[in-house]
């Protein structure tokens, strides 16, 4: 059998007249941890709901473990979903929440007890089994929701914004926990997020979506270092994006923003070029700008510099001495850190 856990083929998803996802093709491998990343309204949640069976596709095919489940109803798909708000049953204890699905399957009581206890153990909630959901913290509720899905041994586990409702410290803890869990159980996980840092940190592979279309897929390293389009670059933190407006001579070109232009002493065939803030050199170089803002961020200083081509963001190691607001600095947009981009797909 193939190693494809989920296969979406020419999937069209629509709400009435509004087409959310025009035609999606995506294969998710067994044991993979995939992030569906994109801004709100990009179709990532719709796609996830379609995989779960909570939404009927207008056309196309959904295969799970090689079986066409497009027409299979949500309660028979064997897909788990951890809701953003956890969706715990308020009238049932932690134990009963986890046991809910097993009881429906008429599992023998002894097996239920054993499986629920193992599930609670896995997420570190054994000692809170008798608590009601309202008596648990946000992080505990999420782990309970996770255990409730995991004991059903789903073919795919879907997670809707798994970290967004947690505070910064819990977020790190949960991130580690999800990775550990995935390694231990080998379960295929697909999670939806609008937070690129979350996707980069957690996923084996990121599927970046925009307006219902996959903009780019790749490993976190791929996407972080080598975005292909203006949208992808902007989403993963290339804060300085310029249009290449013309090659003036054999070894120079002009880049432009909405507000102005800069001359660079090298050429590119790309339609756009982008630099991360840490890719901009400050203190030397052919251009000059005025420091409009500077913020100390521990290991670095974050500058905003007003230039002929508008504002430029630059990060400089904090060990270097600070340039004050209002001072003029020279800077360079080096060829080595420039990422060539296409305008769109």
């Amino acid at each position: 059998m193939s190693d494809t856990a989920v296969s979406l083929q020419n999937l069209t998803l629509a709400y009435g007249e509004t087409v959310a996802v025009p035609s999606l093709n995506l294969d998710i491998h067994k044991g993979e941890l995939v992030a569906l990343l994109g801004p709100s309204g990009c179709g990532k949640t719709t796609t996830m709901r379609a995989i779960a069976g909570l939404m009927t596709p207008r056309s196309g095919t959904i295969m799970i473990d090689g079986v066409d489940v497009t027409k299979v109803s949500a309660n028979k798909r064997g897909v788990g979903l951890v809701f953003q708000s956890y969706a715990l049953f308020p009238h049932l204890s932690g134990f009963e929440n986890v046991a809910f699905g097993l009881r429906l399957k008429r599992t023998p009581a002894a097996v239920i007890t054993q499986k629920v206890e193992a599930g609670l153990e896995l997420v570190g909630l054994s000692h809170l089994a008798e608590r009601m959901p309202a008596e648990l913290s946000g992080g505990q509720q999420q782990r309970l929701s996770l255990a409730r899905s995991l004991v059903m041994e789903p073919k795919v586990l879907l997670l809707d914004e798994p970290l967004s409702n947690l505070d910064a410290r819990l977020r790190l803890e949960m991130r580690t926990e999800l990775q550990t869990l995935q390694r231990q159980t080998g379960i295929t996980m697909v999670f939806v997020t609008h937070d690129q840092a979350e996707a980069l940190a957690l996923a084996d592979r990121i599927v970046l979506m925009k307006d219902g279309v996959i903009e780019q897929t790749g490993t976190p390293e791929d996407l972080y270092n080598r975005p292909n389009t203006v949208f992808a670059a902007d989403f993963v933190g290339f804060e300085n994006i310029f249009k290449v407006s013309g090659n003036t001579a054999s070894n120079s070109m002009v880049i432009a923003s909405d507000t102005g232009e800069l001359n660079l002493n090298y050429r590119s065939d790309a339609s756009h070029l982008a630099w991360r803030p840490e890719g901009v050199i400050i203190g030397s170089g052919p251009h000059a700008g005025v420091v409009a803002g500077v913020a100390f961020a521990g290991n670095k200083r974050e500058y905003v510099i007003t230039t002929d081509a508008g504002k430029i963001r630059a990060d400089v190691d904090a060990s270097e001495s600070a340039v004050q607001i209002g001072e003029t600095v020279s800077f360079e947009l080096p060829e080595s850190s420039a990422r060539p981009l296409r305008e769109a797909l």
Partner: peptide, 12 residues
């Protein structure tokens, strides 16, 4: 969403 959660756990 608790109804959807119940459906995904096997409920009609």
């Amino acid at each position: 969403d608790i109804e959807e959660a119940a459906v995904l756990l096997g409920c009609t």
